[in-house]
Design a protein around this nucleic acid. Structure first.
Length: 564
RNA sequence: UGGGGAUUGGUCUAGUGGUAGGACAACAGACUCUGGAUCUGUAAGCCGAGGUUCGAAUCCUCGAUCCCCAGCCA
């Protein structure tokens, strides 16, 4: 019984946010939980967003509540329609249900404007004529207090009039702002009379030219939460010191009290998660668009072949805390492999081919060998793979002078060609430089299917592709985007990609059944890794495969011989 | 004497005064027609110093280190 309890506890482990919510529910504070996922449409959705969406959507659904998708579109200078569509597409692909209503902060521009007027009327906001530099000067520094703006004590009437003129486009960009009147001596800089409306003569993607003043994040986010009756507004820790401001507006405006709760953002080794850096990669063409398979974007991962279930599983495994973290990429890859191992079709392809001639096999014929589509799941059936006198194998699978414990092909030794025959290497042919260019073997005709008739053990099994009857493909191998473990956010000189982040192999022999490969199907190239057809660059007759992730390779690690 | 947050094996995390547990990574072995998968095992941790207590990762005190904040970005 103790054991049972212990197991239950382990499974029901609650993070601190779920604890808060459970308590709020049991205290009767709320009847129904409403969360929100509030991306700014200024880039594509990435795995960090996915984590946040996962937290918000799953907490809502666990409690029979709902989660609103809300685009935080208060800054028309950065936001674009394209990103809104892309986000919705990615969200759907991941399986998040945001119902049929999409919310926008811009839905509340009218309401927000009247909140601002209300604040002015309460003497809690004022129009400030200081320019940007002056505002910064007056704000003080981290260790010194700020001082009051000379415009802080304008009359309500004057403020109302000026604010209306701001709205009516009477002033140029940057000449005036509306500020909340709080406390210029606060230790929290967010409370030193924060700007809540700024003049921007820019067309908004949804409201067009209706507005030339736009609310800032601080003035829009909390009130939008409140208007949607969001019970728990979950965001990342860098907003922690905005919370007093968030609460200040709710309090002064006397509106529905949403509660902001912060948790640490997700970081993954070998990649970067900042929207700024990611868009820089795209804009500078350092990568090939937002859906470049090396990108940590959802569209990049999809194109690379990461299944949505694996991404969700990863989000679930990286739990919710406030600590700064750097999750090892290997956890994500583990989730991907675990998912794909069960579902991917096995096929054979050779990345670095060398020709093998089977001297005692008839020259002019080929035969069809049965091969399992997935040994993990016999229900996935089998297929025919053509076998012939000339085949390709992986260069790494042959060694003239084998290192210790080498279970592959070497002169005088036997190896099994997967699903086909046992072959023994009898000779090699070298070029002028002494490099092996062709391997000569003899096959055991009584080992069809890979089973020697006399039952002898053959330790090594290698993959192969018929030279007579096969196809060709371009294969793209990816590695981590950046080589440094972490790198400086602000220093863009540091934006150096891992030079090996992509490797393109052309004209690789692949099993002929792959000519019918279709988009979105996951394949395991046996002994190599998981691959998927590239959705952008595959044309009929010219196949391009992306490596999703390699198979774990305990030999490569062990063997200094094989180190690349 | 600015404000806010955090600190458990290499990494992520559980623990809420009573044997520090899990996952990833690593290592060793078993098994195997994928050196895959699977299985078994090994190593590895409470930031530090005091205190309270029969007993402290947990409570108290002092200290250390790291992260965030000086956008009219979010």
């Amino acid at each position: 019984m103790n054991n049972t309890n212990k197991d239950d506890n382990l499974e029901n482990n609650q993070d601190f946010i779920r604890e808060i919510i459970s308590k709020d529910l049991s205290d009767g504070k709320y009847k129904r939980i409403i969360t929100r996922f509030p991306p700014e449409p200024n880039g594509y959705m990435h795995i960090g967003h996915a984590k946040s969406a996962f937290v918000n959507f799953s907490i809502a659904s666990e409690n029979n509540g709902k989660c609103n998708l809300r685009f935080d579109d208060t800054n028309p200078s950065k936001e674009e329609e394209e990103f809104i569509h892309a986000f919705q597409n990615d969200l759907k692909w991941l399986g998040f249900d945001y119902g049929n209503k999409v919310h926008y902060s811009s839905d509340y521009f009218d309401q927000l404007y009247s909140y601002a007027v209300k604040l002015i009327e309460m003497r809690l906001a004022y129009v400030c004529d200081l320019n940007q530099d002056e505002i910064r000067e007056y704000r003080g520094t981290l260790t010194t207090k700020g001082k009051n703006s000379p415009y802080r004590d304008r009359t309500i009437e004057e403020n109302l009039d000026l604010f209306e003129q701001m709205k009516n486009g009477k002033f140029k960009n940057g000449t005036r702002v509306l500020r909340a009147k709080i406390d210029m001596s606060s230790g929290n800089l967010n409370l030193r009379d924060p700007v809540i409306y700024r003049i921007m003569n820019i067309i908004h993607h949804r409201t067009g030219d209706k507005w030339c003043i736009y609310p800032t994040y601080d003035f829009a986010h909390g009130q939008s939460d409140s208007l949607e009756k969001i019970t728990h507004s979950i965001c990342t820790v860098e907003f922690e010191d905005h919370r007093p401001l968030y609460n200040w507006f709710i309090d002064k405006l006397n509106i529905y009290p949403s509660r902001q709760i912060e948790f640490a953002r997700l970081n993954i080794s070998g990649t970067m998660m900042s929207k700024r850096q990611l868009s820089e990669l795209v804009l500078s063409n350092m990568v090939n668009g937002w859906d470049d398979p090396r990108m940590p974007t959802i569209s990049g991962m999809r194109r690379r072949g990461y299944p949505s279930e694996a991404i969700l599983d990863f989000c679930k495994r990286t739990s919710i805390t406030k600590r700064t973290n750097l999750v090892d990429l290997s956890l994500l890859e583990h989730c991907v492999r675990e998912n794909l191992n069960k579902s991917a079709y096995r096929v054979m392809a050779v990345l670095n081919p060398i020709k093998v001639v089977i001297k005692n096999y008839s020259n002019d014929s080929f035969e069809e060998i049965d091969a399992l589509n997935n040994p993990e799941d016999p229900a996935m059936g089998s297929r025919k793979v053509p076998f012939s006198r000339e085949i390709y194998i992986e260069r790494e699978d042959f060694a003239e002078i084998p290192p210790p414990k080498f279970h592959r092909l070497t002169i005088g030794k036997e190896v099994r060609l997967r699903y086909a025959y046992i072959v023994k290497c009898v000779d090699v042919i070298k070029d002028e430089k002494g490099e092996v260019i062709e391997i000569h073997c003899e096959y055991d005709e009584n080992s069809r299917g890979g089973k020697p008739a006399d039952g002898r053990k053959v330790r090594g099994t290698i993959h192969w592709v018929s030279a007579l009857k096969s196809s060709r493909a371009e294969i793209r191998i990816y590695d981590k985007l950046i080589s440094e473990k972490e790198f400086d956010e602000e220093n863009s000189d540091n934006m150096e990609l891992n030079p090996n982040s992509i490797k393109v192999l052309k004209n690789c022999p692949i099993e002929i059944s792959l000519e019918n490969a279709s988009e979105g199907i996951h394949y395991q190239f046996e002994r190599l890794g998981y691959y998927i057809l590239d959705s952008q660059d595959t044309k009929s007759g010219s196949l391009v495969f992306n490596r999703t992730v390699s198979l774990r390779d305990s030999w490569a690690k062990k063997s200094s011989f094989n180190l690349k």
